[in-house]
Amino acid sequence: MLPSTNNRRPIITHENPKSPISEAYRTLRTNIQFSAIDEELRVIMVTSAGPGEGKSTTLTNLAVAYAQTDMKVVVIDADLRKPTMHHTFSVTNRWGLTSIISGQAKLNEVVQQTYVDNLSLITSGPIPPNPSEMLASKRMTALLEDLKQSFDIILVDAPPTLAVTDSQIVATKCDGVILVVDSGKVKRDMAIKAKANLDHVKARILGVVLNNMDRKNAESYYYYYYGTSESQK
C-alpha cells in the first residue's frame, strides 16, 4: 500500500513558487548553470557536514526548480543509511537504488514519477548491510551513465560527509557537489573538514549553500535588492 499523499512533505518551490525562498532556489539553479562554462554539469551531488542541515530539502527544491524549466530531472536517494526521499514524495520504498545495484530490479522498474511535472525519483530501496561498497560499485557508475540517456539533470542525495565515507565515494562519480551548511548549527572547523574530505577525493565543489540565515537580515537584503532595482527603472 502506498503512503497517503496527505502526509507528504511540502516543497516550497512547488507549493509557493513566487516566494522569496523559491526565488533563492532558482538563483542557486542559475548559479550552477553559469558555473558550467566549459563542461556539462549533468550529475550533481548534494551533501552536508552533519545531519539535520537541510541537504535533502535543498536538493528537493533545487530539483523542482530545474523541473520548472522543462528539463527532465531525476532525483536519486543515495543516503542508504537514513533515506528520506520516499517520505518527501510519499511513494513506496519497497524497491530502489539498492535493488538495481544488487541486480534484483531493472532501471525502468524503480524510476517513479512524482506529482511534480518533469521530476522522477529513484528511492534508496531496502537498506543494505554494505552501503559504501554498493555506491563504489561499477553498477552505480553504469546506472548514472544510463540515466544520462533519459534525463537532463541527475541530482544525488548523499549522506553527511563527516558521518561516513559514502558521500566521498559518490562525489567521484558526479560532475559537481553542493555542500549545505547550517549557519546556526555547524561550527566553522566542521565545515572546513567537510570541504577537506571532498577535496581529498578531488570532488568539484560548485558552491556552498548557507542554510538558516538570520531571517531579519535575509528579508532586509531581499527588500533592498528589489527596491534598488525598481528605483532604477
Score class of each variant (00 low, 15 high):
residue 37 I to V: 09
residue 37 I to P: 05
residue 37 I to F: 12
residue 37 I to G: 10
residue 38 D to I: 10
residue 38 D to Y: 13
residue 38 D to T: 04
residue 38 D to S: 07
residue 38 D to H: 12
residue 39 E to R: 15
residue 40 E to Q: 15
residue 40 E to R: 14
residue 40 E to P: 13
residue 40 E to W: 11
residue 41 L to M: 15
residue 41 L to Q: 08
residue 41 L to A: 13
residue 41 L to T: 09
residue 41 L to Y: 15
residue 41 L to E: 12
residue 42 R to A: 12
residue 42 R to N: 14
residue 42 R to M: 14
residue 42 R to E: 15
residue 42 R to K: 15
residue 42 R to V: 15
residue 43 V to T: 10
residue 43 V to P: 09
residue 43 V to C: 11
residue 43 V to A: 12
residue 43 V to F: 11
residue 44 I to D: 09
residue 44 I to K: 10
residue 44 I to F: 14
residue 44 I to N: 14
residue 44 I to V: 13
residue 45 M to T: 10
residue 45 M to E: 11
residue 45 M to I: 14
residue 45 M to S: 10
residue 45 M to Q: 13
residue 45 M to R: 05
residue 46 V to Q: 04
residue 46 V to R: 10
residue 46 V to D: 12
residue 46 V to M: 11
residue 47 T to P: 06
residue 47 T to W: 07
residue 47 T to Y: 13
residue 47 T to C: 08
residue 48 S to P: 08
residue 48 S to C: 08
residue 48 S to T: 07
residue 48 S to A: 02
residue 49 A to V: 02
residue 49 A to C: 08
residue 49 A to S: 06
residue 49 A to N: 08
residue 49 A to Q: 03
residue 50 G to M: 03
residue 50 G to S: 09
residue 50 G to T: 13
residue 50 G to D: 05
residue 50 G to E: 10
residue 51 P to A: 09
residue 51 P to E: 12
residue 52 G to V: 10
residue 52 G to D: 03
residue 52 G to H: 01
residue 52 G to E: 01
residue 52 G to T: 05
residue 52 G to M: 03
residue 53 E to F: 02
residue 53 E to G: 07
residue 53 E to C: 02
residue 53 E to L: 06
residue 54 G to D: 06
residue 54 G to P: 06
residue 54 G to A: 08
residue 54 G to S: 11
residue 54 G to Y: 07
residue 55 K to L: 04
residue 55 K to Q: 03
residue 55 K to F: 00
residue 55 K to P: 03
residue 56 S to T: 11
residue 56 S to N: 07
residue 56 S to C: 11
residue 56 S to K: 12
residue 57 T to L: 14
residue 57 T to Y: 11
residue 57 T to E: 13
residue 58 T to P: 00
residue 58 T to A: 00
residue 58 T to N: 01
residue 59 L to Y: 00
residue 59 L to E: 01
residue 60 T to F: 00
residue 60 T to G: 04
residue 61 N to Q: 12
residue 61 N to Y: 06
residue 61 N to I: 14
residue 62 L to Y: 06
residue 62 L to W: 04
residue 62 L to F: 08
residue 62 L to D: 08
residue 63 A to I: 04
residue 63 A to T: 00
residue 63 A to K: 04
residue 64 V to G: 04
residue 64 V to Q: 12
residue 64 V to D: 06
residue 64 V to L: 13
residue 64 V to F: 12
residue 65 A to W: 03
residue 65 A to V: 02
residue 66 Y to A: 06
residue 66 Y to E: 03
residue 66 Y to I: 08
residue 67 A to E: 09
residue 68 Q to L: 06
residue 68 Q to P: 09
residue 68 Q to I: 11
residue 68 Q to T: 05
residue 68 Q to M: 10
residue 69 T to E: 04
residue 69 T to F: 00
residue 69 T to M: 04
residue 69 T to W: 01
residue 70 D to N: 10
residue 70 D to K: 13
residue 70 D to V: 05
residue 70 D to C: 05
residue 70 D to A: 13
residue 71 M to Q: 13
